[in-house]
């Protein structure tokens, strides 16, 4: 029996009379890479923010890492990592200082932070940059760093909101190596993306259209369901029906 780490039931978020997220129900299992796909404005970020305890749901139910998103947001926060769509490390702090800050916030000791930072910086090959301000780094490095910060405290689940937006293909590959690495260590990965090649890397994906989940399954299941051999086509068939559009 697979262990469930995220479970939602008819989870909704309504702004005024606008149903940004419209009754979504799904489950995510421990250690899997769960892709969250959908056109611009489909409601991915809104849904993710509710699961992270950043936004109060309007209705429905959801449990994350065993805690209720309505009542136990602070407990959820202890068990998750989050990388927002907007880059949000401190540009005016160095790599080491950012790691120190977030490590400290999650209660790691200075010694623990120092050791872990050291090995992380070696792994990322940032030895020469570790004392540079984060703002001066190229975007690809920033994104890899932001991901590393979000799992620095070894959370149970990490939420990644378009982590590879605007990043070159080589760096994207490296980024996904990091994601796989985290998944192997048992961290559940919940990730949104607009790249269909990345969707193929996920164990399972959900397709969101106008605030609702219209399809859910492994990439091969979805391709079979929509009678095609590529994810682009699956996405196109679903998104074409969307009424909501940001563009």
């Amino acid at each position: 029996m697979k262990e469930i780490v995220i479970q939602t039931e008819k989870l909704s978020k309504i702004f005024g009379d606008f149903h940004a997220v419209d009754g979504i129900s799904f489950e995510v299992y421990k250690g899997e890479i769960f892709g969250f796909l959908g056109a611009n404005g489909a409601g991915k970020t809104t849904a993710m923010r509710m699961l992270c305890g950043l936004s109060h749901p309007t209705s429905g139910k959801a449990m994350v890492a065993g805690f209720d998103v309505f009542k136990q947001t602070e407990k959820i926060k202890k068990n998750i990592g989050y990388m927002s769509q907007k880059f949000s490390l401190y540009d005016d702090l160095t790599i080491l200082e950012n790691l120190e800050l977030f490590g400290g916030i999650y209660g790691m000791s200075r010694k623990e932070i120092r050791e872990k930072s050291q090995s992380l910086i070696e792994k990322l090959g940032l030895e020469n940059e570790s004392k540079k301000l984060v703002g001066s780094l190229p975007l690809g490095w920033k994104q890899k760093l932001a991901f590393s910060v979000s799992i620095f405290h070894e959370p149970k689940i990490v939420f990644l909101d378009e982590p590879t937006g605007g990043v070159d293909p080589v760096t994207r590959r490296q980024f996904w190596d990091l994601i796989y690495d985290a998944a192997h260590r048992g961290i559940t990965v919940f990730v949104t993306t607009h790249y269909m090649d990345e969707a193929e890397y996920c164990n399972r994906i959900s397709m969101m259209v106008d605030g609702r989940i219209e399809a859910l399954g492994s990439p091969s299941e979805l391709k079979a369901q929509f009678h095609t051999d590529n994810m682009d086509e699956v996405f196109y068939q679903l998104a074409r029906a969307a009424k909501r559009s940001d563009s």
């Binding site: 992270c52 305890g53 950043l54 602070e74 407990k75 926060k77 202890k78 998750i80 989050y82 927002s84 907007k86 880059f87 949000s88 490390l89 401190y90 540009d91 977030f102 916030i105 999650y106």
Partner: peptide
């Protein structure tokens, strides 16, 4: 404005 507060608010701080 920058969005860093989101990263703070998502921690158990």
């Amino acid at each position: 404005e920058i969005g860093t507060i989101e990263q703070i608010n998502v921690t158990p701080i």
